[in-house]
Design a binder for these strands. Structure first.
Lengths: 119, 119
DNA sequence: CCCGTACTACGATGTTTATCGTACGAGCAG
DNA sequence: CTGCTCGTACGATAAACATCGTAGTACGGG
C-alpha cells in the first residue's frame, strides 16, 4: 500500500529524544543570532530546508557547526536526502514539552526584528 | 517610620535601557541553570530579594557574576539597600518588549522542573 | 569512472564564560 | 573605633564557543 517511506537514506544523524531536550539547551541554541535567524526562517517557510538554502554571514564550516548545535539541542531535525541535508523544526516535540514556548520565542524575535530592522 | 523614600542609596548600578534589551541576551542569560533558577525564584516570590537570600551551589564570587549577567542582559534590576543588594525582575520592561515571553519561559522551566524533580 | 555539489571532520585560533580564591569597601551594631 | 556581614573587584584558570581553512566523504549525473 502506501509505501510512503521515501528512502530513509543510509546515513542518519543522532538526535536527542524528546525527553532529553533541556530548556537550557534550547535557550542557549537560540541565543546566537545566526541560529535564531535559521530557526526563524525555518518557521516562516514551514517546510524542511536544505542547509544550502540559507544565506548566512559565515562560512560553510561555521554553518555546519550551527546546524549541529540546533540539532543536538533538540530544536531541529536533520535528515539526509541525497547529498542535501534537510532541516525541519521539531515543532511537535517542542510543543509537547513546552507548550507555546516556540511560538512565543518566534513572536519575540519577530517583534525585535521589526523594531530594529523595520524602523 | 514610614519614611516612604527608603534612602535611594549612594551607589547605583548600570542597567540597560528598555530599548537596549536584546532577545539573544535574555536567552543567553537564562540558558545557564544557576541563573534560570535565580529568575524562577525571583518570579515565584514576586518581591525583590537580596543576593544572600539565594542558596546556590557556587561561591559568592560566582553568584555576583551571575547576578551581573542577569542585570546586564536586562532581566533583573538591582538596587542597593544598605549592605544588601535587592534584586527584582524587570517584568514591566520585558512584558512590554516581548509580551508573554517571560511567563512562557517560566512555565516551561516549571514544567521541566516538575518532570525531572517531582517525578 | 570521473567530476561537481553538498556537507563533514579536523585542527587552529581568539573570545567568551563559569568558576574559584583572596583581598577589599560599605554599611550596621556594639 | 572595632568587628561583622554583604557584596565587589581583580586575577587566575580551565572549559566552551564561534570562527575559519583545508582536506575529505557521500551522492548523483554524464
Amino acid at each position: 500500500m502506501t509505501t510512503a517511506a521515501p528512502t530513509p537514506s543510509s546515513r542518519d544523524l543522532p538526535h536527542p529524544a524528546r525527553e532529553e531536550i533541556r530548556l537550557e539547551g534550547v535557550l542557549h541554541a537560540l541565543s546566537d543570532p545566526v541560529r535564531l535567524r535559521i530557526v526563524r526562517e525555518l518557521a516562516a517557510e514551514g517546510v524542511e530546508l536544505s542547509c544550502s538554502h540559507f544565506v548566512l554571514p559565515v562560512t560553510k564550516s561555521t554553518t555546519t557547526h550551527h546546524f549541529r548545535v540546533l540539532r543536538e539541542s533538540g530544536v531541529i531535525r536533520q535528515i539526509y536526502e541525497g547529498t542535501a541535508k534537510m532541516n525541519g523544526l521539531r515543532r511537535d516535540d517542542l510543543d509537547e514539552l513546552f507548550p507555546g514556548l516556540l511560538d512565543c520565542l518566534l513572536t519575540a524575535a519577530a517583534r525585535q526584528a521589526a523594531r530594529r530592522g523595520g524602523g
